[in-house]
Every structure is written in C-alpha cells, then in structure tokens.
Design a protein around this nucleic acid. Structure first.
Length: 850
DNA sequence: CGCCTGGAATTAGTT
DNA sequence: CGAACTAATTCCAGG
C-alpha cells in the first residue's frame, strides 16, 4: 500500500515519523509473493537445526552439490575445522604457474592440490595441475577471459562461475542436499558434494581476479588486526601465505545445480549471440567490458602490494562471456584465497604464517606459490562434517569459505545485526552511478556487533549473500560495493574472495565491537553476464533478493579461530516496487490518536503466503514516517498454526541461536516493521539456519516488552486473538473507490495503542468486504500463540508452512486465492503508527507498499 | 561537479 | 511467429 497521505494538511510527524527521511522500503512487501512463486522447492526447508553448529546444513541430495566450496573438514583437534581446498584444481594453463592463465583445466580430483599463497609471485601451483585431470571439459577450462569487468568477473567468475551455486534462486535442491541426511543420504550426498565442492573450489580460483575496483581503498584499519590473517596488513598480504589458491574444476556437468528457481532460463540457447551474449549485448557487456582492463597480470593474485586486503583481490575476472575456464586459467585464476574463505589448508600444512600469525604479506602472488596437494578427504567425511554440527572453530589458516554456513553464535560469542537494513535497496548497475549505501529501516545504516569479545580489533567481513531458501552463499548477481565519501564514517576496504567481493571493516573494542555499515552499497551484475558463465546455473531473473552477510573470525588461541556469521533480513534489490498503493484516510474516524484508513487490497489475491507490506505515513510532502509493516495473510494461515511451525524456521531447527531468532523471539520486536519478520521472507531465509542470528533491533518501535511475538492478530478476529494489545485496527473491506475516504480494501484505524489499546474494531459496515472479511471469516481465530509461528508455520502459513503443511495436507487448499487476506499484526500497526500519529489532527494514512 | 535518487524509457525474455 | 506482458537495464533529470 502506498502511503496514505493527507494532502490537505501537513501533518506533524515528529512523533510519528522519526526524522527519518529515508524512503520506506516499499517494495519490500512484495517479497512475500515472490516467495511463493519462487519458493519452489519445497524441499528446501531444513529441518535440521543443529544448534550452533554451523552445520545445520542439510545435506544436499545427490544431484546437486550444495556447497560451493568444500566444507571445512574437521581438524585434528576436536571441534576444529579446516577448510578444505577445492577439490578441483585448475590446471595451469600455459604456464601453470603463473596464474595458469591459459585455460587451466580443472582436475577433479580426489586429491586436491592446494597452494598456499606464497609471498612470491609465483604462479599458483594449482593452476598448473594437469588439465587433463579434469577431462570433463568442464567449464573450468576456459581461456583466459579478457576484459571483464571486474565486478562481474569477480562475481561471476569467482563465484564460481560455475561452481558457485546459483545464487539463488534456484535452488531447490540445495536444501535437500544439506539435509542432515541420514547416513545413506550422507553418502549419497557425499558424492555429490564432492563434486560440488570441487566445483566450488574451482570457482574460487577463478575468482581471483582482483577486483579492480578502483575504489577499493586500501585497508584503512587493520593493522592491528589480530587476524592479520585475513587482512593482511594493509600493505601486505603476508597472511596470504596462509591463503591458498585453489583451482577448481568446473562444475561437473553431472552435478547440475539445482534448478534455478524458475528453471534456469537459457538465453538463446546455444549461446546465441543473443543479446545476452555479453559481447553482443547492447549493453556491451562484453564489449564494454572487453575494453576493460585486461585480465590481471599473470599473477593475478597478487594484489598489489599496495593494496592490501585481507582478501586478495584477484585479478579482475575475465569477461563474463568467457568461459570460466578461461578466466580461471588466466593469471587471474590464481586466486588467492583469502585466509578465510578459501584457504585450504594444504596438506595439512598450513600456509606458513597462516595461522594466526599475520603473515606478512608476501607478494601478492603468494597465493599461487606453492600449493600443496592435499589428500582429499573422503566425501563422507566431508559430508559428515557438514552435517554434523560442529563448532565453528577453524584454523586460522583455513578459514571457512564464504559459502560455508556458520552459526551466528558460539558459546559466548555472537555476531549480531543490531540494526537491520531496509527491506529494499535499489542496487546499481555498473552503468549507473552508485545508489548509495544500504540503509536501515529506522534510518541510518545497519549496525553489526560482536558480542562476547572485546579484546582487540577484529576484521568484520561483509558480502552479499543469497536470500533464498538454500544455503546462504555469495550471490552471483550482486556484489557488495564500497561506498566512500564524506558521509561515510566507517573505514572499509574491498577484497575479493573467491570471486566474491568482500568488504572488510574493523570492529573495535572502543566501539563495543560494533560497526555502522554505512559504507556498503550493492552492485547489480547483469544477468546475462553472469548467466553466460559456464557452470552458472542460477538465473538472475527474479533473483533480486539478497542479504548482507557478516562474518568475523575470532581468535581463540592456538591457531584457531571461531568463525561466526550472521545475515541480514532479505533485501529486495530491484527498484521497482511490486505493488504500491496509497491508502485513503478516513478522517471521520480518525482523531488525534487514531488514524483510520482503508487498506487497499493487495494486488495479488492469490498469494499463498503471507505477504508483508510496508507502509509509512506521509504528510503529503516529503515527510515520511519510518516504515512499518504488516502482512496480508492468506486466510488459512490464521486458522492453522502449523504444527511444525517450529520447524518452519529451519533456523530454529538449525541452531539454538537461530532458533530464537528465527522465531523472532522476544528479542525481536514484535512489530512487523522489519522485513525479516515477514514470514514470507523469513521462512525461507531462516531456513538457512545461519543467517539470522541476531534479532534486529527495532529502535523505532521499540519492542515492547510486553509484546509477544507470537501473537498476531488479524483484524477481524484480531482483537480477539489475543493480542497483547488490542490493536486499534479495523479493516473494512471495501471496494476501492476513488473516493478519498472510502477505500477499497479494508480500512482500519491506526490508533495509538496507547493508553488503552483500543479493542479491535469491527469492520465497518459500509465497506464491502473484499472477499471474505476477516472477521467473519473468522475462520480466523486467534492463532495459537506461538510467536510468529502462530501465524503460520513459521510465521506463516506462507512459505513456511507451505511445504510441510502441504504435505500434511494442511492448508494447501486453504489459502483463498481470490481473497486477499489482510492480516496484520495489530500490535504492529498500533505501535507503529499509532503512537506517532497521536497528536495529529487529521492524519493521512498510508499503506505500505508491498 | 559529483553523488544520490526516483522515474521513465528501452530492450530483452516469457508466455 | 507475433503480440502482450513482465523483468531487466539504461538513461535522464532533480535535489
């Protein structure tokens, strides 16, 4: 719903609206729907939840590899993981050494070769591997890409072009993969995994092109960072030593990725030069890019000595069009694995210095330098490792890859997103100027904090991850973009890890180990550029949601670190709102403390899931209140609390830490203001288990202590439902007349909950019910208070419920298609709007855009 | 002048 | 194969 505005008068928003100027995330709401469509894979949901352990990861079904990179394997020490090198090695192209520029091939191997990055510029050994090994002709063998745009490349390639799992959407299967399958499954999976992993590994290599991002600034801080590993000190990558370079094989054909959400679409099939083809594309992806700087020098890896980065910037990735293989082979290929991500411990051998030490940065090329070959652990081992819940402890030398799931909390450590980003952020294309940093819903920017540690500065890594139901992993179509400028107070620098741009910031004890993420924008890569990459199975179309993923490696002594990660709520990156309507304010029923308006009906009446929509109150000018949200729910949801609700949020299942969050436990604000709460969103996301670690803060609305997350009320029944607070909202289903006050849809007063929460108001007589008015539908009964779960299985009936319940026979039929349901958490509404509004003369109402 | 933004115009991909 | 639509990108203009 759009914002309702009163043009007549200007409202005083001080109270209501924070000062925030930012536009409300309108589009966000849409997600719900999309989810529906997209969610596809029912399988997705994981039930697993291993607690803290990162592992909550489900095993992938045989078919698809779920992980891109091999999961870290358990280290000798109990509870410790070593990241493994990609199994595939890229064969050096021409000279293997140098970056294997030539199309190195990837070998599949049982054994992996890892090269630690040596300070020396040597080309990565890995590259050299025999190409043959990979006879598969997998994409891995690619000619060196040339002129790619850095980002794309980075993203693409690295992401593994091939390897990397599809960003997103696709995925159906992924989950299945991970599921903790039983042993058998495990085995099964193992095989697949192996491949996948290999692929991943390969991808990583590929990545390497350093991001050329011009902007990447030298690392600001770091120096002290204990973990120099990561970030080598600015100047040096020393640590890199520890980093390993891997060359990975292309994705095996066999292990196809999960189908993209929609099924990956093919651009003109055979590579038609359809527009898609980069080269041809009008946009000139290729063309443009082509011109771009040639692939990085042979020794890609090396970042400039000058440019320090924890992660290496790998040489710029080759053009998208180029087969990944190519890219990889090129010098670029030699990717340095950042300590964490990619590093595979070499034969056990850690890269020198790898461990905690900060390795001086050796030459950039270190990565390449000597790679050791590792014996590849048996698939099973890997599988299990993944599956099993293990502590997120890794060797400093072998940090977990970006696609490796990690818990947000471990023992006393917890990486929490104190302030969540807005649910909508328009990403910019390379052809556009920056669209700024991601903002927080309440205004300002997201804030991430590490709890349980304050000894010394640590490096906080951030990258753009997927937001689908599959495992959280770097998003192929989006990259983090470093924002600089006078308005940016947080020092950061870009690094490329395995083809994924990573923004690194410092968490300082003096700042309570918190970082204000005001330096992170989101870059959109052209779908065609990414999709053309060999090995890339994901499609970019409609794959526009991302999450900000934060990771930190906390030194534990003994060369070990605890890696914790958390992901933000999903962020819709398409500028475009799916739905937006302006709600009409019913002045007659509005007063100083209550704003009554008619809620427009949701555009898509067939949603099967709850759709969270956002709204804000505008004074008709530029003043806008902070964005608030509520959900349109399929009727069914209300009625049935999913039994599994708990499950629905995989997260919960996945881990203790998560569980809570997922459920949006108390800490969470009751209000819908934030997207993540949105069932739609969450469910899927949650599934991943990790990401959401922390409950977002909802400053604005401050979560009322009293609030029960679980209680959700629908308007009609709503009040009844037992909201802790009776929301003063009433919906009136009405046709949507143009009439200012009459509305179509239901109207509800946004009242100030204050004093006495107004009881829920019954629908107004006049308004024609859209379909079934809630009330009567009464089917709507108060949901069981499970917290959000109530609403659905995970909130909702929506996505979460979907599968499970369906399977159960639950509500599938349940949703009413035709009827748009409007479910709102009264509480939310009340709080959100109500308070603020109080005091207004005749407030304009507004709706949330979907 | 450059960075953001919001929107609209185009073009490509689907149905 | 073309039309109608939708989504993705590119451009523009205003602040």
């Amino acid at each position: 719903m759009g914002a309702a505005s009163c043009e007549d008068e200007e409202l005083e928003f001080k109270l209501v609206f924070g000062e925030e100027k930012e536009a409300p995330p309108l589009g966000a709401g849409g997600s719900g729907e999309e989810l529906d469509s997209e969610d596809a894979p029912s399988c997705c949901r994981l039930a697993l939840g291993e607690p803290p352990a990162p592992i909550g990861i489900p095993r992938p079904p045989p078919p698809r590899p779920g992980m891109h990179s091999p999961p870290p394997r358990p280290a000798p020490s109990p509870g410790t993981w070593e990241s493994q090198p990609a199994r595939s090695v890229r064969l050096g192209g021409p000279g293997g050494g140098a970056g294997g520029a030539g199309g190195g091939r990837v070998l599949e191997c049982p054994s992996i070769r890892i090269t630690s990055i040596s300070p020396t510029p040597d080309p990565p050994a890995a590259l050299e591997d025999n190409p043959d090994a990979w006879g598969d002709g997998s994409p891995r063998d690619y000619p060196p890409p040339e002129g790619f745009g850095g980002y794309r490349e980075a993203g693409g390639q690295s992401r593994g072009a091939f390897f990397s799992p599809s960003p997103g959407s696709s995925s159906l299967s992924s989950w299945s993969f991970f599921s903790d399958a039983s042993d058998e499954a495990a085995l099964y999976a193992a095989c697949d995994e192996v491949e996948s992993e290999l692929n991943e590994a390969a991808s990583r290599f590929g990545l390497g092109s350093p991001l050329p991002s011009p902007r990447a600034s030298p690392r600001p801080w770091t120096p002290e960072d204990p973990w120099s590993l990561y970030g080598p000190s600015p100047g040096g990558r020393g640590p890199e030593d520890s980093w390993l370079l891997l060359s990975a094989p292309g994705p095996t054909p066999a292990s196809p990725r999960p189908a993209s959400p929609c099924g990956k679409r093919r651009y003109s099939s055979s590579g038609t030069p359809s527009s898609a083809s980069p080269a041809l594309s009008r946009r000139g992806s290729l063309g443009e890019e082509g011109p771009e700087p040639p692939p990085p020098p042979p020794l890609p890896l090396a970042r400039d000595p000058g440019s320090p980065g924890p992660f290496d910037y790998v040489g710029a990735p080759p053009a998208e069009s180029i087969p990944q293989k190519t890219r990889r082979t090129s010098s670029e290929q030699a990717v340095v694995l950042p300590r964490s991500e990619e590093p595979a411990p070499c034969n056990g051998k850690l890269p020198s210095g790898a461990e905690e030490s900060v390795a001086p940065s050796g030459g950039p090329q270190k990565e390449v330098a000597g790679m050791d070959y590792l014996v590849v652990p048996s698939p099973l081992a890997w599988s299990k490792a993944r599956i099993g819940g293990h502590s997120p402890i890794f060797r400093t030398s072998a940090l977990p890859p970006l696609d490796w799931p990690l818990p947000s909390q471990y023992e006393q450590l917890e990486l929490r997103i104190e302030v969540q980003p807005r649910a909508h952020h328009r990403a910019h294309y390379e052809t556009e100027g920056s669209r700024g940093a991601v903002k927080a819903a309440p205004g300002g920017h997201p804030v991430v904090k590490l709890l349980g540690y304050s000894e010394k500065p640590l490096t906080l890594q951030m990258f753009i991850g997927t937001a689908d139901e599959r495992n959280l992993r770097p998003h192929a179509f989006y990259q983090v973009h470093r924002i600089t400028g006078k308005m940016v107070a947080t020092a950061s620098y870009e690094a490329v890890v395995s083809g994924t741009k990573v923004l690194e910031m410092t968490l300082l004890p003096e700042n309570n180990m918190a970082a204000n993420i005001d330096c992170a924008g989101i870059l959109k890569l052209r779908n065609s550029d990414i999709e053309l990459r060999k090995g890339e199975t994901d499609i970019g179309r409609k794959n526009t949601r991302v999450r900000l993923v934060f990771r930190v490696h906390v030194p534990q002594g003994g060369g070990k670190v605890v890696s914790v990660q958390t992901a933000s709520v999903p962020i819709e990156c398409y500028g475009k709102l799916q739905w937006e309507e302006e709600a009409m304010v019913n002045r007659l029923q509005s007063n100083e403390v209550t704003l009554t308006l008619t809620v427009p009906e949701y555009s898509n009446k067939r949603v099967s899931r709850p759709v969270q929509v956002y709204f804000y109150v505008s004074n008709g000018r530029r003043k806008r209140s902070p964005t608030q949200s509520f959900k349109f729910l399929p009727v069914i949801c209300k009625e049935e609390p999913l039994p599994d609700s708990s499950l629905r949020g995989f997260p919960s299942a996945s881990g203790p830490p998560f569980g809570t969050d997922m459920d949006f436990s108390p800490p969470r604000p009751p209000y819908p203001s934030y997207p993540h709460e949105d069932p739609a969103y969450e469910a899927p996301y949650l599934s991943e288990g990790f990401g959401y670690g922390t409950p977002p803060l909802y400053p604005q609305t401050g979560p009322p202590p009293s609030y029960r997350p679980g209680l959700r009320m629908f308007p009609e029944s709503g009040g009844a439902t037992g909201c802790a607070r009776p929301p003063p909202v009433s919906f009136l289903p009405r046709p949507f007349p143009s009439d200012p006050y009459g509305g179509r849809g239901s109207s509800f007063p946004l009242g100030l909950p204050f004093p006495p929460p107004a009881p829920f108001r019954p629908p107004l007589p006049g308004s024609p019910p859209l379909e079934a008015p809630f009330p009567s539908q009464s089917g709507v009964h108060p949901l069981p208070a499970e917290g959000y779960n109530e609403v659905g299985p995970g909130y909702g009936p929506g996505e979460g419920a979907s599968e499970q319940e369906k399977s159960r026979g639950g509500y599938s039929s349940g949703f009413r298609d035709s009827v748009p349901i409007q479910g709102i958490t009264l509480e939310e509404v009340s709080e959100i709007i109500g308070r603020d509004l109080s005091g207004f003369p005749a407030p304009p109402g507004e709706d949330p855009p979907a």
